[in-house]
Write a protein that binds this DNA or RNA. Sequence first.
DNA 1: GGATCGTGTTGAAACGTTTTCATCGGAGCC
DNA 2: GGCTCCGATGAAAACGTTTCAACACGATCC
Lengths: 335, 335
Amino acid sequence: MGAVSIREVAALAGVSITTVSNVLNRPEIVSRKAVERVEAAIESLGYVPNIAARQLRAGRSSVIGMAVINITNPFFAEMALGAERAAEASGYAVFVGNSYDSAARESHYLDLFDRQRLDGVLLAPIGDDLSALERFAKRSVPVVLVDRVDPSGRHASVSVDDVLGGRLAASHLIEGGARRLMFVGGPTRIAQMRERLEGTRIEAERARLDLAVVDEGALSVRLGLKIGRDLAAMPRASRPDGIVGGNDEVALGIMHSLIQAGVDVPGEVSIVGYDDIDFASASTVALTSIRQPSHEIGLRAAQLLLAALAGEDLRDRSVRFDPELVVRQSSRPVG
Amino acid sequence: MGAVSIREVAALAGVSITTVSNVLNRPEIVSRKAVERVEAAIESLGYVPNIAARQLRAGRSSVIGMAVINITNPFFAEMALGAERAAEASGYAVFVGNSYDSAARESHYLDLFDRQRLDGVLLAPIGDDLSALERFAKRSVPVVLVDRVDPSGRHASVSVDDVLGGRLAASHLIEGGARRLMFVGGPTRIAQMRERLEGTRIEAERARLDLAVVDEGALSVRLGLKIGRDLAAMPRASRPDGIVGGNDEVALGIMHSLIQAGVDVPGEVSIVGYDDIDFASASTVALTSIRQPSHEIGLRAAQLLLAALAGEDLRDRSVRFDPELVVRQSSRPVG
DNA sequence: GGATCGTGTTGAAACGTTTTCATCGGAGCC
DNA sequence: GGCTCCGATGAAAACGTTTCAACACGATCC
């Protein structure tokens, strides 16, 4: 069809294919006159270079792949945006794959990245099994883990100290007077959840308090609503009075159910969420939450990957951010 | 480095390159024995076909591009998921680009799709200007519009009747006794917003009621909070008592501010959102909203595109869904 | 027993670039 | 005026696949 190739551009401009290619890739080495003629020809023919051919010949795709756990979560969306910004500044495009909490979808995207010969991979992994990344190592395609550390230390990572996040949440609740703690976590195969739980547990033990743990799959508003109903049905004396939600969605759901059922938040129950999404501050009882520098995380991860693509060694270049407690109305004030 | 090509597979299996290619693409025409040998060789070498080469030769990428307005919005996320499901069933991958409410980002993705020679395009367009799609027509790359109709009728589309949605929202408010209506819309360059406003206006005029219109850019929780504060500061007699939000985020924000300021919802003000996201039902005063079949929209759009790729003519194949009113606590009951 | 057919297989061309190396023409130098 | 040198240009090879046309071989047919 209208598939216009470099050949036709060259013909129209009256130069060789090489010159057209040079105009595209290193315009500084070709004469002003030739540049102008070629650009005019490109314009008039509506020529668009065929990436597949370029990639085949050059061996690089100039695209990096990014697979995130759940792009609907504003935390990951912001992260992706940060990564795209950094990548684009260096002439790379970013292909974002949404795992949607499914390991199958994640591995499907890694397959795709592999087949497409993407130049690098950013991965916010769902599970603990990083063996799927070995094929990239084999072709020396750099990989940077996002929001997650590699226990084996083989992959660079940009992450947040989730243990600290859990501790911030729990100690805040305890200082506010909570005595019966509960942690509502996602699937424990997700490392972030395990770490947040661990942080919560550390503080609970230090204060010699009991800690109930709920793990019923992916954290959603819907799940929170159900858990909240169950909690509301418990006698107040045995009901948890300090709840750490693995994310804001589930925390908001819990809070809603409790309030609907007439339970006073934060009077009877204090709640802390995680991620500080926009809705946290917009709920009728604004949600206390743990904030992470999402945009920054994506940005730094991409920068690390770009550095690797530029030939730098990534060992010991990992980055770890600290989360931050944002106190609002859903938790009793300290004292 | 480990870049193993079809050539080495062929050598190891003791067959020609052609046979390896055939095993990959049409295994039915090659003998059982050869298939086994080739598959063993592929396995032992860890061979992964180079898509760029395939695409260059075959002229097809087997990838379709999808650009959506804002993937953080669960409506679009579900839509993308529906499209991916349909595409994958036919052996296509989907490259999802997030415009993030920015026309520049949208056009950036269309550029990328074009350069990458993707086989088809699904687009939930931000603005009215569809001229950027012409280049696809020129190369006869099929395009299906999502959540949007093409006024010129040149592109097939899968959309929702937003005028009807606006009418459902407004007539529900009016039946509940609202007399001073307000519509809070996003940028009017977004057609959906215009249509929702139009539907609201139709019902307002029919009931001979005034309609205030707010348009202050992208609809977010934050914006809603601000609008709600302004509303709360107004004397009750002149304050709108029936509000249609262009999406749930802004509606929830408005509701939150009003309640915080002591305004009774739905006693003094009724509110209807749009999209029926999970948070709508999880807010302390559950939000009445307009629901759209998001997953189905994406699915049908991809199916249409696949049909086009299979050579079918898309003219007059557009699909239009009807939205649905979901009544909850944020609006006064009828009567 | 030769022509015809069918089944598996193969060699070679082609896809549209980038890149290497050679060539060319002219400017600067002695 | 002949020499070198340099910048600009071009011819051709290469990237890894798909696909077409041709081939080998045995079975089937008259």
